[in-house]
Every structure is written in structure tokens, then in C-alpha cells.
Computed example of a mutant assay.
Amino acid sequence: MTSKTGKSIVTNVSAFVCGLIFAIGLTVSQMVNPDKVLNFLDLFGHFDASLGFVMAGALMVFISAYLLVIKRMEKPIFASNFDLPKSSSLDSRLIIGSAIFGIGWGLSGICPGPAVANIIGANDKILAFILMMLVGMIIAQKANKNSQ
């Protein structure tokens, strides 16, 4: 059975379940709490190393899954091939984009994943962040089209 986009219902349900697990993990670990994130980034103030343990735990789970499962697969379960980046070079767009992302994350304590997971709280700061994130995505998309 397929949906209007041509993807199977199983693929869409799988994506939903993965997103739900991710959102629950972000919430339980308090990565959706901007103050917790800002305290993690405040090395010389109210430093809170607990998010470092969350990140280390996530890396251990991913590396284990990658080495034991993903690396051995010829293709993904719900796609015809792995969609990997074509380029591995560090260009100015990547460096500038990373810097802008880091500055935004450091100033607000909000990252796109946790912001989306936190949208249900209808917090003004989160909603403003998501709106500005969407504006930034539109500007980046237009800049991409102009540079090609």
C-alpha cells in the first residue's frame, strides 16, 4: 500500500516512529531545554557537563549500530540506495554555514532537532526560532539557486 507521495505506509510509519523515539530522547535528556544547552556551552560559568554524556551515549549507540548493521548492508531497508554526500571537501559554504549554525546555537541554546521536538509546548522563543529557521532555509535555498 502506498501513499500519495509513492512511499509505502510502512516507510512513513517507520519514519514517524524513528522521529518519535528521537523526540522522546531529546526531551528525556533535556536537550530541548535551551537553559540546559546554554549551561553546557558556558565553560567558565554555570557549566553542566551532562549533555556531553548524552552525546557520548548517542555516539556509542550509533557507532555500534553502524559497525554491526549499517556498514554490512548493501542498501537501506526502505530505499533503493544510501544517499551519501557527493563531495567530501571543505568549501566556504560549509564553513560559513557551520559558523552561522554554531553562533545561532550558542546564542539561543536551541538546535533545529530539539526545536521541532519542543514545538508542542508552543513556547514563544521556540516558535520564533522555528520561524527564523524557516526564513533562513528559504534565503539559503534562493542563494543556492543564484550561485548555480
Results as ranks from 00 to 15, higher is better:
5 T>K: 04
8 S>K: 12
10 V>W: 13
12 N>C: 14
13 V>K: 02
13 V>R: 00
19 G>R: 10
20 L>F: 15
23 A>M: 05
23 A>P: 07
31 M>L: 02
34 P>M: 03
37 V>P: 08
38 L>H: 07
41 L>F: 03
46 H>W: 03
52 G>Y: 04
54 V>K: 10
55 M>G: 04
56 A>W: 12
59 L>W: 15
61 V>P: 01
61 V>T: 07
62 F>D: 09
63 I>H: 04
63 I>S: 09
63 I>P: 06
66 Y>Q: 12
69 V>A: 09
73 M>W: 14
77 I>A: 14
77 I>F: 09
79 A>R: 06
80 S>A: 12
81 N>E: 15
82 F>D: 12
88 S>V: 05
91 D>R: 10
93 R>N: 07
97 G>R: 00
102 G>I: 01
102 G>S: 03
106 G>I: 02
107 L>M: 08
108 S>C: 06
111 C>R: 01
112 P>C: 07
113 G>W: 05
114 P>E: 04
115 A>C: 07
117 A>W: 09
117 A>M: 08
119 I>W: 01
120 I>S: 10
121 G>R: 11
125 K>G: 03
128 A>V: 14
129 F>I: 10
137 M>W: 15
141 Q>E: 06
142 K>Q: 13
143 A>P: 01
143 A>E: 11
145 K>Q: 11
